[in-house]
Amino acid sequence: MITIIVVDDHAVVRSGLTMLLSDKPDLQVIGEASEGDEGIQAALALKPDVVLMDFSMPHGKDGLTATVELKKLLPDTSVLILTMHDDDEYLFRAIQAGASGYILKSAPHEELLAAIRSVAAGDAYLYPTATKRLMSEYLDKLKNPENKGTYDSLSEREKEVLALVAKGYANKEIAELLVISVKTVETHKSNVMEKLGLKSRPELVKFAMKKGLLNFE
Rank of each mutant, 00 (worst) to 15 (best):
I2F: 04
T3L: 02
T3K: 03
I4V: 14
I4C: 04
V6D: 02
D8P: 01
V13W: 05
S15Y: 06
L17S: 00
M19N: 13
D26H: 13
E35Y: 04
G36A: 06
G36P: 05
D37E: 15
G39R: 06
I40W: 07
Q41Y: 12
Q41L: 14
A42W: 10
A45N: 15
K47M: 15
K47D: 14
D49R: 03
D54R: 06
M57K: 03
P58D: 03
P58F: 02
H59Y: 10
K61R: 08
K61G: 07
K61D: 09
D62M: 01
G63V: 01
G63T: 01
A66P: 04
T67I: 03
E69N: 00
L70R: 03
K72L: 11
K72G: 13
L73P: 00
P75E: 02
D76R: 09
T77R: 02
I81Q: 06
L82A: 05
T83H: 02
D87I: 01
D87P: 00
F92V: 11
I95M: 13
Q96R: 15
A99G: 01
S100M: 10
G101Q: 04
I103K: 02
L104D: 00
L104Y: 03
K105Y: 01
A107C: 01
P108A: 12
P108V: 14
P108Y: 09
E110W: 10
E111N: 06
L112A: 07
A114V: 12
R117K: 10
A121P: 06
A121H: 11
D123T: 14
Y125S: 00
Y125K: 01
Y125E: 00
L126Q: 06
Y127C: 07
Y127W: 10
T129I: 05
A130R: 03
T131V: 13
K132N: 14
M135N: 08
S136W: 08
S136Y: 09
E137R: 11
L139P: 00
D140G: 13
D140A: 09
K141F: 05
K141A: 14
K141Y: 09
L142T: 15
E146W: 00
G149M: 02
L154N: 00
E156G: 11
K159T: 04
A163W: 02
L164Q: 04
G168D: 15
G168A: 11
G168I: 12
A170R: 14
N171P: 05
K172I: 09
E173K: 08
L177R: 11
V179K: 15
S181K: 09
K183G: 14
K183M: 14
K183S: 14
T184C: 10
T184Q: 11
T187Y: 10
H188N: 07
K189H: 13
K189G: 04
K195Y: 01
G197F: 01
K199W: 10
K199S: 15
K199V: 14
S200R: 04
S200Y: 11
E203L: 06
L204I: 08
A208D: 05
A208E: 06
K211E: 10
L213I: 12
L214M: 08
E217F: 12
